[in-house]
């Protein structure tokens, strides 16, 4: 599941992707515009900087900007950094695997289906760039129509 951390991080990156290339944004401005607690956003942006998605500059003229073009950054790559392996349930991850204490994996049909869901999540998120996410029509009603077309 996408945590709040993942959601806020994606929102902040969409915010940065709307700026002219190279322009920096203050954390406070990003936080206010997207309704994110500033302290939390500080921590999120620091992680995104460590992973190489954003760059920061200190001081009065400081702030954050994208480290590369939003068309080169895949949404799935951001989510893995913020939320860990793309797994809908901990037992569906290999590196961050945690067994459930209340079921037997060998016979668990739920886990089996969640492995398929994991694959589907990666299929969607690894094939969408930050630029595409930014430019998507923001209307839920469009989705089923798009798929039928």
């Amino acid at each position: 599941m996408l945590t709040k951390k993942g959601k806020y991080g994606l929102k902040a990156l969409v915010h940065l992707s709307r700026l002219p290339a190279g322009q920096l944004a203050f954390v406070g401005d990003i936080a206010r515009a997207n309704n994110i607690p500033k302290k939390f956003l500080d921590a999120i942006l620091a992680e995104l900087r460590n992973a190489g998605f954003v760059q920061s500059r200190k001081g009065k003229e400081g702030g954050y900007r994208l480290a590369r073009s939003p068309s080169e950054i895949k949404v799935g790559h951001i989510v893995r950094v913020l939320d860990g392996p793309l797994a809908p349930i901990p037992c569906a991850s290999r590196t961050r695997y945690e067994p459930c204490d209340d079921c037997d994996e060998a016979t668990c049909q739920v886990r089996h289906m969640m492995l398929e869901v994991r694959h589907a999540i990666a299929e969607v998120l690894d094939n969408r760039s930050l630029a595409e996410m930014r430019d998507t029509t923001n209307d839920d009603l469009d989705l089923p129509q798009l798929q039928q077309a």
Binding site: N50, G52, H77, R80, V81, R118
Partner: peptide, 24 residues
């Protein structure tokens, strides 16, 4: 080891990736 692409931090800078890989 068995890995899935869902686990791997693709698209990150080298230092981040190397840290993940060394931890593994």
């Amino acid at each position: 080891i068995k890995l899935d692409r869902a686990d791997i931090p693709f698209g990150t800078e080298l230092s981040y990736f190397v840290r993940w890989f060394s931890d593994l």
